[in-house]
Design a protein around this nucleic acid. Structure first.
Lengths: 229, 229
DNA sequence: GGCTCTATTAATCAAACGTTTGATAAATCC
DNA sequence: GGATTTATCAAACGTTTGATTAATAGAGCC
């Protein structure tokens, strides 16, 4: 008899922590930092309100841990892919961009594990200029961004620093927008544009980005020519 | 003698309305819908708190009017540019994309009139999946999107519907991200990437998008070939 | 079986929230 | 010039917010 009720031991405490993070992720994604409420998150996670302050001291730190959890996982994948790729010489631009964009896009399409909520969260703070968002971006994403930009310049030496940074940011913004999956593509195409076929989207995003990057590289070369002629 | 104080007549009331909209735009952009407060907006606008409910019934309607004001202006520009362009035959892809992206990017770079705050607001709600954001996007931006997509297919008949929708959404996401101007480009390039030279950015964005779109078109053609062979 | 540490609870706090109210000036109308 | 409309204000409404507290229940150790 007795309890299928939640136990009070340490094993359960990890469950509670994860449940809080999951609920917070959904809330922050849908309502923003200011719009999400600790009470709502607690209710959604099925825990007492005070537990959130017990595990995470305050709302700010909760927000930070939500982002850290996912950013750590994706960036580990991207770093590993870069290691693998450059271990056997200099890759093609296509291989490089797929290595950078695939983990991002796949996380956004992982509906079962809550990745799509996080996707919308990233899009939101990575395009915001308030201090909290800027901190999140620079802390969690600037390191991999710098490494990626350096990698792009190895693959395409014609890219000067400014063009490479632009190329990276443009590509990432495309990947993030397809991550967010707002359903707008389906609406605008009357259902003909499927935004949930991951492979199709990775293919389209990589093709779009690589062509765009090559165009930026040519622009850079042409500008240089103008100056010397 | 007496008052340099604000007058209570109708001429001043328009000033108050505009001041509220400007302050609300900044607040919504920085803090999100939930994070922005009527009190803060009133303080920032220099008006009594109740005035906001007097001119705009509630927070939701204020939000809507903030977006409507700017979206109306930009989309009028884009529609006019499309009219002009197609009046003299079918334009090049470059001309078309510049017509679509320039008004957007220029508004985001108009620091003096508050356009850059609106830019961040658009990026945020256009990538969100909550009901309020979806409504804003579909009401204010779906019509011009549909017209733009149709225009792209006239210029590049190889684009099927799905590819054209993707091409449009990818291009817009790039333009929006450069609009948002978070300062990240400067940070990642140690200042070598200037994100405030409007002409340079329009040029880079158009070049990147057009190359990407042509790549998507080629993908579509190749997939068709695979099916028939 | 008592002790200690971790996990959890309900109750409570001051502050801030969006919204409404009633009063009052000034401008407009007839 | 009296009536009406528009614009503005300070104050208050009830609710919700993030955070803290003191009490307690269970697990693991000796």
């Amino acid at each position: 008899m007795l309890s299928e009720l939640p136990k009070k031991d340490a094993r359960n405490s990890q469950k509670a922590r994860e449940a809080i993070l999951d609920a917070a992720e959904r809330a922050f994604a849908e309502l923003g930092f200011g719009g999400a409420s600790i009470r709502g998150i607690a209710r959604d996670a099925g825990v007492n309100q005070a537990m959130i302050h017990y595990y995470f001291q305050n709302k700010d730190q909760l927000y930070d841990e939500v982002i850290d959890r996912r950013a750590g996982a994706v960036n580990a994948q991207r770093n590993a892919a870069l290691d693998r790729l450059f271990a056997e010489g200099v890759p093609t631009l296509e291989k490089l961009m797929e290595a950078l964009l695939r983990p991002t896009i796949e996380m956004g399409h992982d509906e079962t594990r809550g990745g799509s909520a996080y996707a919308r969260l990233v899009v939101s703070f990575s395009n915001s200029a308030d201090e909290r968002s800027q901190n999140m971006t620079s802390q969690h994403y600037d390191p991999i961004a710098s490494r990626s930009i350096a990698a792009m310049r190895k693959v395409m030496p014609e890219l000067d620093m400014a063009a490479a940074v632009r190329a990276y940011l443009y590509s990432i913004s495309v990947a993030l927008s397809v991550m967010a999956r707002t359903g707008r593509a389906a609406r605008l195409s009357q259902g003909r544009c499927n935004d949930s076929d991951t492979e199709e989207i990775v293919g389209a995003t990589v093709a779009f980005s690589c062509a765009g990057i090559r165009a930026l590289a040519m622009q850079a070369v042409n500008q240089f020519d103008e100056k010397v002629e």
